[in-house]
Design a protein around this nucleic acid. Sequence first.
DNA 1: ATGAAAGCGCTAACAG
DNA 2: CTGTTAGCGCTTTCAT
Lengths: 365, 365
Amino acid sequence: MPGQQTRTTIADVAKEAGVSVSTVSRALRGLDKVNPDTRARVEAAAEKLRFTFSKTASSLASGKAMRVAVLLPNEINSWFNANTFEGVYEVLSREGYDVVPYVMWEEDDLARFLRTLPGTQNFDAVIVVSFILDRAQRAFLDTLTIPMVGINVPSTEGFDATVRIDDEAAMHGVVRLLRSLGHEAIAYVEQPVQPSPFTCSDSVRMDGFLDAAAREGYDEEHILTIPSLSRLGSEDEEEAQESVGGEAAAISGIAAQLVGAICRPTGICVENDRCAVLLLKELRRLGWRIPEEVSLVGFDGDSVGDVVDLTTVRQNPLQLGRAAAGKTLALMRDEPLDEPHTVAPTSLLMRATTSRLSSGRTLAA
Amino acid sequence: MPGQQTRTTIADVAKEAGVSVSTVSRALRGLDKVNPDTRARVEAAAEKLRFTFSKTASSLASGKAMRVAVLLPNEINSWFNANTFEGVYEVLSREGYDVVPYVMWEEDDLARFLRTLPGTQNFDAVIVVSFILDRAQRAFLDTLTIPMVGINVPSTEGFDATVRIDDEAAMHGVVRLLRSLGHEAIAYVEQPVQPSPFTCSDSVRMDGFLDAAAREGYDEEHILTIPSLSRLGSEDEEEAQESVGGEAAAISGIAAQLVGAICRPTGICVENDRCAVLLLKELRRLGWRIPEEVSLVGFDGDSVGDVVDLTTVRQNPLQLGRAAAGKTLALMRDEPLDEPHTVAPTSLLMRATTSRLSSGRTLAA
DNA sequence: ATGAAAGCGCTAACAG
DNA sequence: CTGTTAGCGCTTTCAT
């Protein structure tokens, strides 16, 4: 049990190598203008003393935190968030940056986080994922001096760079597909149980669907929407449980709405694959023949869909994350960005949960 | 375009409030021994100046980094890693700690990381997930002064605390199940494509299986093992591709081995659910009737298994993460740990991919 | 190519 | 309860 072992500092190395601290700093950081011999001596001393820099001290002295914050809604562990984060991590960690996740549970968390941003150099950049910022917040971002990069944020305003997919266009593609398959009544299903009372940019998908449906000539009677429970203002706090029970119940509730609909939809689009596969299972259990009588389309390209060959809209959050990180890197280095705001592609993956509806064939009432 | 806006520091607030910096520090941190009036004045000044602390400066001065590192093998985005991380994050972020992930791709990364640990106070604690450390490394951990906490590490040696599931016991349960269902030839399948050349503690599962099989009276002819490709020393660098192609190919390779086995197994255990569902799909495609003729068991309790009602061994990495974080917190606060090393439960979840083998019934050769 | 010195923004004794 | 005084460990002009 040795006493409070005082950490070895750059000064110890300097003494050991017989040079000044500034020389040690230069040598160990690989800067030029250091005599090779000196450098070798310093490195040997550092090695011998098992010295490594204190990031904290370096940060304070240099003004660069070597740290970027990633703001995520609800959880780090959803398919989209986790993949996005991984992409960001991949690029930034390689360049020596720490990538620190911050999960926002309620609107207030975001506001609070943003408030801590100005004035102090805690981060070299902030990457914001999927949040819908109000006008005031976006204006506020403009006052900040560090790079702010958005991923799937509805507006580019306030951001130095953004990367996103085009949800509207993707939904339009889905609606066109359903129409071309002969579906005259369609439905959009949102993820029933939101993990927290946050409105994030997934919610633009439903609008995109409705917009596309209108353009494709569907009238109100032939469009069914099943919004998430939280949208309905159900304030049951029980719902945000970990237990899958709530989710299973919610899924069967959705299935019931679908089955009991006045104008029963035969073309269904679900907000994400995770939800879609559960609904698929439930609907089949209730006797719906998919894809013979009903077509189901997911969204994401999550591997859960592979097992059941779910037709879906694929996106690549890993790439989204990488792209955002690349832009962040450039911005931190004051390099010019040829295209600050980019749109990443999505693609319709046709698999086994969609098929042409035989004309004249209708579901029994 | 205002000039380099110099950040507002604690000194600015002090001046504004007409007090000393230390008073500001105390007031804003909520320490006692501060006159309520003074505190109010300071808070007003801080608010007015939009002041927030520089974490970096605080860390340097106080010696507490308020940051803990989480070391993860291969990727942050596997089911186990992501859930574990989320659990850790949940607990630690609530207490004001930054939780910083570090992904290790090769053995060297770990060694390098560990080397940077001594001497400098970059982290207040380190949480290590699933790594197998050699004797020298474990001994090294003992020399460190900050808390080291392990999750699913094979040996408690070198760690101040650990949380783990009992893989051996769980595998024993699986083997007993298969035996009781009447399976006389059994197989263990490892995840074919490892994301990186890392050996992490998942590999103890196969040993557990073999051990259990021996104890339950299976002889070598009736045990088939299909180790991961990387174990076989296949050095194809192509394999670590992102494309699912490699994985799909690997799965069908496994299926082929199973189908072509001299003593065809009817009870199969797969390292994890993700892999299991893919294999399930492929085996069914090849005409195997599961569970009527063959039983399949996964591992994890990943929600991918829900869709196909996969029988599996459930574990709860979220809880593992929370538990580890709790211990970490206690250690950082020098609180005593009543039980430094704990084992979390797993449970066998019987679903639709296992069933009793009708006696006398055999697969056609 | 190297050293001396002045901070970076804050905390933590120690006085008062 | 509040102010004074030293640093925390490193980077960075500015000399030399």
